[in-house]
């Protein structure tokens, strides 16, 4: 606990300055940051040397829980959302199959290098499922999923590299996060959402 908690004025200042309502990140800015990181050229040697001089690695504790934590992270980050390269070979190879066809959605937006990203959602009784996110202005009708005979719903969307927040809309009304993807801490408008990271090739 911070020693500020013992002073009512400083304690309240602290709460004010920690209020998320005032400093909530813009999901677009977060995605733009990742895009910039991937796109930024590696600095020249003298720049790296200067940075190294200004940013020495800090000492600290090596963790004893590395293996367990790595397992946990691997568990949490696995998900049903994958780039096309990572899909089942049948689905990713090109020609659609009856078991797991790749349904490409049309997408209108600025022309940047986009990566085919497949969304897969399981819902046995839904009449319709669509995906909404920061990439389609959360429009419920923009990206409908196609129902497969095995009960899965799927659509493949070309997305720009970066971080995207999304959710599924069931029967046009119920908005749910992807149960097999990391939760977004900054869901738009208070709605629950999930995160997909799209990497440039």
């Amino acid at each position: 606990m911070s020693d500020s908690m013992q002073d009512p004025v400083i304690s309240r200042v602290r709460e004010t300055l920690r209020s998320e309502s005032a400093t909530r990140p813009d999901p677009v800015a977060v995605a733009r940051t990742l895009q910039t990181v991937w796109a930024a050229p590696r600095p020249v040697w003298w720049r790296r040397a200067l940075d190294a001089w200004r940013m020495p690695a800090l000492s600290g504790l090596a963790t004893s829980a590395v293996a367990a934590a790595a397992l946990l992270v691997g568990f949490v980050t696995r998900g049903a959302v994958q780039t096309r390269d990572a899909l089942d070979p049948v689905a990713a190879a090109g020609p659609a199959t009856e078991e797991f066809p790749v349904q490409f959605a049309s997408y209108e937006g600025e022309e940047t290098a986009r990566i085919a990203t497949q969304f897969v959602f399981e819902h046995a009784t839904a009449q319709s499922v669509s995906v909404v996110g920061d990439f389609n202005a959360w429009e419920a009708d923009a990206l409908p999923l196609t129902r497969l005979p095995n009960g899965l719903w799927t659509v493949t969307v070309p997305l720009p590299p970066g971080r995207h927040v999304y959710a599924y809309v069931i029967d046009g009304t119920l908005v749910v996060a992807d149960p097999r993807a990391p939760k977004a801490g900054d869901a738009d408008y208070g709605r629950e959402g999930s995160v997909v990271m799209v990497f440039a090739r």
Partner: peptide, 11 residues
Amino acid sequence: HNLGRFRDDAR
């Protein structure tokens, strides 16, 4: 760009 210089025992 400087992750390579981040020490494994650092925080």
